[in-house]
Amino acid sequence: MVDTRMIAQVAGKPGFIAALDQSGGSTPGALKLYGIAESDYDSEAEMFRLMHAMRTRIITAPSFNGSKVICTILFEQTMDGLVNGRPVPSYLWEERGVVPFVKVDKGLDAERDGVSLMKPMPDLDALLDRAVKLGVAGTKMRSTIRLADPAGIAAIARQQFEIGAQIAAHGLLPILEPEVLIKSPDKAGAEHLLRNELMKGLDALPDGRQVMLKLTIPEQPDFYLPLVEHPRVARVVALSGGYGRHEACEKLSRNHGMIASFSRALLDDLRHAMSDAQFNAALAAATDEIYAASVEKH
């Protein structure tokens, strides 16, 4: 059973979520940004070993603790791995005070009706059972919206809530992430349709059920306040979506009730060749900026 202290922290503690969940497709780009080129490794196993070393360096850094980083989203292989000889989820919670979540989706299907649904997840129940045993508190799954298409956005919301119910049956807290792409030709229109569909899905949830929502920072500040205030929503978090950290933080600071769940915007300034002192200072500066945008609103 999930520790109720974890859920309370994720739902209510000031801070932000660190998304360390780059999967196979996005790992080469993340390593390249970190300063490790594809020519520096010659197998998928070596690629994932280097990525795990990067993540280990992050989660063992002095600033990566529950005072500001209240939760982190892990890639499945990271959840199954070790740090300092201990399972990653238990190390995060017991040593760092950071709640562990895990990314469960397996990537995106081809676009249809202006959206990309998640690929089938036939092994999801087995993954969820393993996550519970490892002490993980929740999950995250991403689909994307490019066009303001009513049928497509309704399908996105329906799939997110259906799989969210499967996750909740295991006692885990699901983060639903229907991402409106920042380069959508009608981002505001897509956000209006999405908010309406999410409200319908939330209203239909049974008593006692909650979800978290991970959403693109909206064009109109505070546009998602009705979702923030909905009794079935534990928390609304924002993805950086391709904005640089400074721009993402400025936009986030204008949205009350939303906290960050940043990936690239958190890691932008980190480089493999940095000394530990340089690395820790860069991560601390990013942490401070993202924390401020999450808790200090304009």
Results as ranks from 00 to 15, higher is better:
79 M>S: 01
91 Y>N: 03
177 E>F: 00
270 L>A: 04
23 S>Y: 10
268 D>K: 14
189 G>N: 08
165 A>I: 07
219 E>Q: 13
28 P>Y: 04
64 F>R: 01
130 R>M: 13
7 I>P: 00
129 D>Y: 10
63 S>N: 04
261 S>K: 03
152 G>Y: 03
125 D>I: 02
260 A>C: 04
162 E>Y: 11
297 K>V: 07
82 L>D: 12
239 L>E: 02
256 H>W: 08
51 M>S: 11
97 G>I: 06
178 P>I: 09
155 A>Q: 07
57 R>M: 06
198 L>E: 06
62 P>C: 10
18 A>K: 03
63 S>C: 14
229 E>L: 12
91 Y>M: 00
157 A>L: 04
193 L>F: 00
117 L>H: 06
127 L>I: 13
80 D>M: 14
36 I>V: 13
25 G>V: 05
45 A>L: 12
41 Y>I: 08
15 G>V: 04
46 E>T: 14
253 S>N: 10
3 D>E: 12
111 E>Q: 13
69 V>D: 00
148 A>M: 03
73 I>A: 02
9 Q>E: 12
49 R>I: 10
250 E>R: 15
297 K>Y: 11
232 R>W: 08
101 F>Y: 14
252 L>D: 10
136 V>P: 03
263 S>N: 04
265 A>K: 02
196 N>M: 12
76 E>N: 13
40 D>P: 05
105 D>Q: 09
23 S>K: 13
217 I>C: 11
30 A>P: 00
258 M>S: 05
284 A>D: 14
142 R>D: 05
70 I>G: 05
296 E>C: 15
209 R>S: 13
229 E>F: 10
213 L>G: 02
82 L>A: 10
203 D>F: 08
176 L>A: 02
54 M>E: 13
127 L>S: 15
129 D>Q: 14
174 P>V: 00
109 D>K: 15
118 M>R: 09
294 S>D: 11
263 S>G: 12
280 N>G: 06
232 R>E: 09
182 I>R: 10
138 G>V: 02
139 T>K: 10
17 I>Y: 09
247 E>N: 12
144 T>E: 14
95 E>T: 06
65 N>I: 09
96 R>P: 01
151 A>D: 13
98 V>N: 10
52 H>M: 06
205 L>R: 09
146 R>Q: 14
214 K>Q: 11
99 V>A: 06
202 L>S: 07
239 L>M: 08
1 M>T: 15
133 K>V: 13
14 P>V: 07
88 V>T: 11
98 V>F: 10
264 R>S: 04
88 V>K: 04
269 D>P: 01
133 K>A: 15
135 G>Y: 02
223 F>C: 02
278 Q>D: 13
286 A>H: 14
163 I>G: 05
180 V>Q: 02
83 V>Y: 03
208 G>V: 09
76 E>W: 15
90 S>H: 07
122 P>F: 03
40 D>Q: 13
49 R>K: 14
271 R>A: 11
217 I>N: 11
190 A>L: 08
295 V>Q: 03
31 L>H: 06
115 V>E: 10
112 R>Q: 10
205 L>S: 07
76 E>M: 14
12 G>D: 12
18 A>Q: 01
116 S>N: 14
141 M>D: 12
5 R>E: 15
